[in-house]
Design a protein around this nucleic acid. Structure first.
Lengths: 358, 358
DNA sequence: TTCAGCATATGAAAGCACTTAACAGAAATA
DNA sequence: TATTTCTGTTAAGTGCTTTCATATGCTGAA
């Protein structure tokens, strides 16, 4: 930490009796510089322990080769994976990524956007905080640099975005449960009016409708969808006159809470109640039984977001319309929903289906 | 993205008929500037939509207020949490964090360090890649700026570091198993000669010794400690003449693999075989039974690392000796190891203990 | 042979936007 | 009147890029 190397292109220049501009060009592999000089410059640079100063370069040509990414928190699996995906791409083309956490706090988010603008990042990739309702900070950002939103977005901003098709996820997994013979499918959703949950719910209802199963409001339970909420919601369902034969929770945590309660009550999964979540949290493959869920393709989401972002960055001021990329989620079928597999062994259970069908 | 605001302190200055230096001082709240001028400057700045240019400031006084963090991958729970912990602290004092992934690849790591040096970060916090054996890139970094290593460190570098006490973790959890009545405790460890695993193993053997239990090499199984390895290792143990009554895996994944095999064989956990892991991965609380494990305090590790780091950063060139902070891990006791709870109900099992004790 | 014309290789200098040491004028204090 | 205090200005500098200019050597037409 002592001898902060102060070697600049001028040092290289004077060592070689040339000017700094030549050194700069040589280092940037400018075709106007002869191979001999380039070689000499590179050699001298190495000898002197020269380390380019990106800050000076950034100041000079107005690009920092740094982008900012804003996530609610960096340690939630989903966001961590997206960050990974973004960094992967950015790194490949010589960009660095500044990571910022909004903690779902509006003021923090606003400050963060400003801090990134001041840091002169070349662009921002963000997932909006839960409580954000005013988007003027993003609008401000958008006036100055490329902005791209992922996962949690808004239609109040004309901005490119990458999201997954929550409707499709909800639809496909509900359909899967129906195919497994379930007819009374409960759904855990969020009490918050967040679009991703609304879409999952819509997928659920639509799938029911398409398969001629009546929608029953009593089977839709609202909560915050954490583990504890999942327990509470499941207990509420158990008090109904007629038990559901499946639960599709819009969050894996909710599904795990339900699983715990069911196991405590010795209700068999999936024979009596099939279970499905949403998100493909790492723990879902370790639960007993492993949980059927919807994969969010989080790393790809980061990749795709970064690719789309850099496309726009390169396009520069050339008008490019905001682009919306919708990723198709994949359903991960695991044991918790495979009711069919047990149907043969389980006469009683099967009769249950039949009577319901009648 | 169109009207890149080009407002500089000069624009503010000329609007107010003062000089840029006065504006600069006013914005930096320099006491030499009168309150009236400050107010006027702030007002004008807001009117003109002024956004400070940190890059110019950084170039001028040689500090970017950005630090770099290098992790093998950003989406592993542990590293994601540390990143979160670091950003938390950094953010509070006006620093931003550039996140870089080495993917455990030596060349990538070297390039990353250089890129960060060129980006003129004010310091680097890093966890060393698995395959790194030459540390000259870190040595080079260390000559120019504060460096701090966490979790995966090396004693080949005189550098501050934050680690957890793996020995203690291994010791405590083995002791816990002993207290639960286990006498034949198996251990899953890594075949790689990584210090964290060596330490956990040492904790295990030491605890055995202190409790008068003979060490049995046959009970120590080496592998890569992933889920599949855990399965293989467990199956190997099952072939022994005498079954172990507990398994302490130095990774949660290994423990989960073991859990799967045991459940498939209808071997009761913890009654017949108690189970413990290491890391407190999120899935451990969702397994059935929930897994006893050692918590790595990952967010605190990030916090502590950042605090120590910024302390050194502030100390600047004033000689400060490399400091080594060792965090005490906490053991998280869950059902998978609570053999005692079953001992009363389970006469047979208890007699098993007694015969062993004899 | 001569020289315009051109390509090639490099230099000089002007910033990029900000900070800060050194300086200066006016008012206030001694 | 001399000195300090307050407020502000001047100008140099941070390391790099890039426009414009220059020097050199070569080709080919006059």
């Amino acid at each position: 930490m002592a001898g902060k190397s102060k070697t600049t292109i001028h040092d290289i220049a004077s060592k070689l009796n040339i000017t700094a501009s030549t050194v700069s060009r040589a280092l940037n592999n400018n075709p106007r510089i002869s191979e001999t000089t380039k070689k000499a410059v590179q050699k001298a640079a190495k000898q002197l322990g020269y380390q380019p100063n990106n800050i000076a370069a950034a100041l000079r040509h107005g690009r920092s080769h740094i982008i900012g990414i804003i996530v609610p928190t960096a340690d939630r699996t989903f966001f961590a994976s997206v960050v990974r995906g973004v960094e992967e791409i950015a790194n490949k083309i010589g960009y660095k990524v500044i990571i910022c956490q909004s903690y779902d706090n509006y003021n923090t988010e606003v400050q963060t956007v400003d801090a990134l603008l001041s840091a002169r990042v070349d662009g921002i990739i963000a997932s909006i905080g839960k409580n954000t309702e005013d988007f003027s900070h993003y609008k401000r950002a958008q006036e100055k640099l490329p902005l791209l939103l992922f996962d949690r977005t808004t239609d109040k901003l004309e901005v490119s975005q990458v999201v997954i098709d929550d409707f499709l996820g909800g639809y496909k997994i509900t359909e899967h449960l129906i195919e497994q013979g379930c007819r009374r499918i409960a759904h855990f959703t969020s009490s918050k009016k967040v679009s991703i949950y609304k879409e999952r719910l819509r997928g659920y209802t639509e799938a029911l409708k398409d398969h001629g199963i009546p929608f029953d409001q009593a089977l839709v339970v609202e909560s915050n969808m954490q583990l504890e909420d999942g327990r509470t919601s499941m207990e509420a369902l158990l008090k109904l006159d007629q038990l559901p034969d499946a639960v599709f929770s819009a969050s894996d945590y909710g599904a795990m809470g339900a699983m715990q309660v069911l196991k405590e009550r010795k209700i068999r999964i999936p024979q009596e109640v099939a279970l499905a979540g949403f998100m493909n949290e790492p723990f879902t493959s370790f639960s007993d039984p492993p949980l059927t869920t919807v994969d969010q393709l989080s790393i790809s989401m980061g990749n795709v977001a970064a690719e789309l972002f850099f496309e726009q960055l390169k396009a520069g001021d050339k008008k490019h319309l905001p682009q919306r990329t919708v990723l198709k989620p994949e359903i991960i079928i695991r044991q918790s929903s495979l009711k069919r597999d047990y149907a043969k062994d389980d006469k009683e259970q099967q009769e249950g289906y039949i009577s319901l069908k009648a």
